[in-house]
Write a protein that binds this DNA or RNA. Sequence first.
DNA 1: CGATCCTTTGAGCGAACTCAACTCGGGTGG
DNA 2: CCACCCGAGTTGAGTTCGCTCAAAGGATCG
Lengths: 245, 245
Amino acid sequence: MYDALLNRLIRRLEVDTAPLSEQERDAIASLPLTIRDVAADQDIVREGERPSQCCVVIEGFQCRYKMLRDGERQIMSFHVPGDIPDLQSLFLSTMDHSLGTITPNRVAFIAHEPLRKLIRQQPGIAERLWRETLIDASVFREWITNVGSRDAYTRIAHVICEMYVRLHAVGLTNGTTFQFPITQTELADATGLSTVHVNRSIQQIRADGLIVWERGVCTIPDLKALQDAGMFEPSYLHMRGNVAA
Amino acid sequence: MYDALLNRLIRRLEVDTAPLSEQERDAIASLPLTIRDVAADQDIVREGERPSQCCVVIEGFQCRYKMLRDGERQIMSFHVPGDIPDLQSLFLSTMDHSLGTITPNRVAFIAHEPLRKLIRQQPGIAERLWRETLIDASVFREWITNVGSRDAYTRIAHVICEMYVRLHAVGLTNGTTFQFPITQTELADATGLSTVHVNRSIQQIRADGLIVWERGVCTIPDLKALQDAGMFEPSYLHMRGNVAA
DNA sequence: CGATCCTTTGAGCGAACTCAACTCGGGTGG
DNA sequence: CCACCCGAGTTGAGTTCGCTCAAAGGATCG
């Protein structure tokens, strides 16, 4: 199995818990994978489908979303390398939302069959994967709070903080600078705001010196200040010991 | 083990999957339980705590919520009999939110220790419990959509539809009438609206003949109409075959 | 039969929305 | 290689949905 991916997966599954045993690592390493490149703005899996595989992000950004009757799109999460965004399909056979790429992606597919076998044989891995889905759920809860209780400015600052911390955790930051190839329209769909209002709010955040964000690259001059502005507390990410200072 | 509770739990774990084996049922039945009555408006477990047990709702309503710095409360889900609202604490040691009662409750506590042992011995049960937490996550996603993309009227109608369907699934409806002991303030905290606006929206929904809701009892004269008004599609509840018509 | 919580109503205000147009940068095809 | 085109970002102006503040009715419960 693809080495960098394997290491990233193992590192991820060990966050805030005991290290995996040799046997467990081997079991993961021997999972059959299909690596594939996917262009930007493509669906990996769509609402209503019954996928027979899970997807691990190797490179690129993805998002989960639902399309509403009125044509509106609600993005419910962004996904970055190391994430397994449709792990829930292992036990919820029909997708209740879609998963799509934002940028060009490299992804690894793992078929449900061998994965089910793996978790039966290695309950320790099952529990860590379960834990991953529980962290997903925790992030969803935080997003409910975000769209339900915070104003536009705070809401956007919060999402940026989250993305920074998650990217940092997988080594995709350089100081407080990181690739952030999300359009303002996507950010609007994620925060439940109009693009116009997102634009004006971002300008305000920029004017306050909290971010520099141009052409898909974002820098946070003062992380503490941005976290305050976004009412951001990383505990909901359950990355203890692995959170950016 | 408390018979009614046991049957409810078993029925719940069998929704949309194969029946449990005799052995699995016995394993569940032999779990040590502590039954307790809890008054209304009490916390079962608080953000920041590290619980050593899970809670099964036997009677009453609960909600998960977060308190924000500014004193605002965001409710992220309601819970009804049969739910295990803090199951995630089995693998996420620190609570990222609080769980409290809305009405007086009867609850059963199951200590983490025997539960962990059970799921190691009975992977089939582990997977069904995992599935429960995945459905939770699905509901959270729907709530992100609800607060992010729908106007007040639709949002409230949607929550009422969800509660109806979930209560129906556990046999707590009588036709389309059900106990719905949520205050408008709680509904406001759940939908990210002000109580005043919730009140006016409810009056509108009432005036449109979609609900009759007085003194904690709600009737839905025309379920289809309310579902349309709330843009409600029950698929996200993953109750196939068990959904109210 | 108060006390208290919940619901309801009125009035003014403001955050976020819609619609519309303009700019800018990068890609592409003639 | 340049002109065009298209998507993303930006700006302006007017509108609206939902908010705040305040106070008055109901219901429920010691």
